[in-house]
Computed example of a mutant assay.
Amino acid sequence: MAQKEQDQRILARITEMVEDERRLRAALASGQIDGSTEQRQLGELERELDRCWDLLRQRRAKEQYGENPDDAQARPSSQVEGYLE
């Protein structure tokens, strides 16, 4: 698969997750779910979003430095989240 095509697939997944986040917030506001359910699901979404952004950044960095972007690997959320600490 072409590099730009793979990047577009990652960006499409990010867009889907952002829409999922909006739906969760709307479900909470309308009383369809409770706050703890929203927080749990939002946490899962945020971790997966961080992993997607990390993978996209890896791919772009590899391309910038003349490496193969397809060598980038999704890292576990524990590693990606650990960057903030």
Rank of each mutant, 00 (worst) to 15 (best):
I10A: 02
E5H: 04
R51E: 09
G31T: 07
S30R: 06
L11P: 00
A74C: 06
A72I: 07
Q32T: 02
A12R: 10
E44N: 12
D20V: 04
Y83S: 09
R59H: 14
T37D: 08
L55W: 06
Q39H: 15
L49W: 06
S36G: 05
V18T: 01
Y65S: 05
L55C: 05
E21S: 08
I33H: 02
C52Y: 07
L28G: 01
A61Q: 14
K4I: 10
A74W: 05
G43D: 15
E85W: 09
A29I: 09
S30G: 04
A2T: 07
R57F: 12
Q79L: 14
M1F: 06
E63S: 10
L56E: 11
D20M: 08
E16P: 09
T15W: 10
S36V: 15
D70R: 03
Q79D: 03
L45S: 06
A61G: 12
G31P: 05
R13W: 02
E38D: 06
L24V: 10
E38W: 09
S78P: 03
Q3K: 02
Q58L: 09
I14M: 06
E85C: 04
A12Q: 13
I14G: 01
P76E: 04
E81H: 13
L55K: 02
R60E: 12
Q32L: 11
L24A: 01
A61P: 11
L42N: 08
D34S: 06
D50M: 01
M17S: 00
Q64Y: 07
R51H: 09
D50F: 08
E19Y: 02
D54F: 13
Q39Y: 08
S78E: 14
R47K: 15
R60N: 13
G82F: 07
Q73P: 01
R13G: 02
L42G: 11
L84V: 08
Q41A: 14
E63F: 14
E44G: 15
Q39C: 12
D70T: 04
D70P: 11
E5R: 00
Q39K: 15
Q6P: 00
P76V: 07
A2G: 12
Y65P: 06
M17K: 01
Q3C: 04
D50G: 05
C52I: 03
I14P: 00
